[in-house]
Computed example of a mutant assay.
Amino acid sequence: MKLLNISKQILIGFMQDLNSAWWAEITTNKPRCVYYFGPFQTSAEAKAAYPGYIEDLNSEGAQGIIVVIKRCKPDILTMCEEGQLIK
């Protein structure tokens, strides 16, 4: 019975992921922040859009930029370490 419940939870999680939109998760080291841009219907749409976000972050002086395209449901679109200043 326990195995059945675990299998059921895994299947539910998988189905929820399939229904999630695509987002561009952009992390910067300076300031230390995580930004979510989206939602997009496809990963291709997210990949096509993120260079514009990178350009904006570069113009604001952000450094150490990392981009990950993934399916998720972010609750908060911008998260920064306490004490970090955002222009």
Score class of each variant (00 low, 15 high):
72 C>D: 11
48 A>R: 14
10 I>D: 04
19 N>P: 01
31 P>T: 09
26 I>D: 02
43 S>Q: 14
39 P>E: 07
15 M>Y: 10
48 A>V: 11
76 I>M: 07
5 N>G: 04
71 R>T: 00
64 G>Y: 04
54 I>G: 02
17 D>N: 14
4 L>N: 12
9 Q>W: 02
67 V>N: 06
5 N>M: 11
55 E>F: 06
18 L>T: 03
86 I>G: 01
24 A>I: 06
16 Q>F: 05
73 K>H: 10
37 F>C: 09
1 M>R: 12
32 R>G: 02
77 L>T: 07
54 I>Y: 01
43 S>W: 03
9 Q>D: 11
35 Y>G: 01
32 R>E: 14
4 L>K: 15
57 L>G: 01
54 I>F: 02
31 P>D: 05
37 F>N: 08
59 S>L: 08
45 E>Q: 15
20 S>P: 00
17 D>L: 13
46 A>E: 02
10 I>H: 08
16 Q>Y: 05
32 R>H: 14
61 G>R: 08
13 G>P: 00
13 G>N: 15
21 A>G: 04
30 K>S: 15
8 K>M: 10
46 A>R: 01
81 E>H: 10
58 N>M: 06
36 Y>C: 04
65 I>C: 00
20 S>N: 14
55 E>C: 00
49 A>H: 07
65 I>R: 00
36 Y>D: 04
64 G>E: 03
34 V>G: 02
5 N>I: 02
50 Y>D: 06
29 N>H: 08
33 C>N: 06
12 I>N: 05
84 Q>A: 12
71 R>I: 00
85 L>A: 10
45 E>G: 10
67 V>K: 04
61 G>K: 08
75 D>E: 10
4 L>H: 11
47 K>V: 06
62 A>T: 01
37 F>E: 10
75 D>S: 08
41 Q>W: 07
72 C>A: 09
35 Y>C: 06
81 E>F: 06
69 I>W: 03
66 I>N: 10
16 Q>H: 11
85 L>I: 12
55 E>D: 09
28 T>R: 04
28 T>E: 03
73 K>T: 12
39 P>I: 10
5 N>C: 05
45 E>S: 13
18 L>E: 12
11 L>R: 15
48 A>F: 11
9 Q>R: 14
43 S>F: 03
62 A>E: 01
50 Y>L: 07
52 G>P: 01
78 T>H: 12
20 S>Y: 12
23 W>G: 02
19 N>S: 12
51 P>V: 11
64 G>W: 04
57 L>M: 11
34 V>L: 09
7 S>D: 13
87 K>I: 07
37 F>G: 03
82 E>V: 13
87 K>S: 06
84 Q>P: 03
43 S>Y: 03
31 P>Q: 08
69 I>S: 02
44 A>K: 13
73 K>S: 13
86 I>K: 13
20 S>A: 15
68 V>G: 00
61 G>V: 09
20 S>Q: 15
50 Y>Q: 12
9 Q>K: 13
31 P>V: 09
8 K>D: 05
8 K>A: 06
14 F>H: 10
41 Q>S: 14
73 K>V: 09
26 I>G: 03
14 F>L: 13
20 S>C: 13
74 P>E: 00
1 M>H: 10
61 G>A: 10
50 Y>A: 07
54 I>K: 06
24 A>F: 05
64 G>C: 04
46 A>Y: 02
61 G>S: 10
87 K>H: 06
35 Y>L: 15
25 E>F: 05
2 K>T: 13
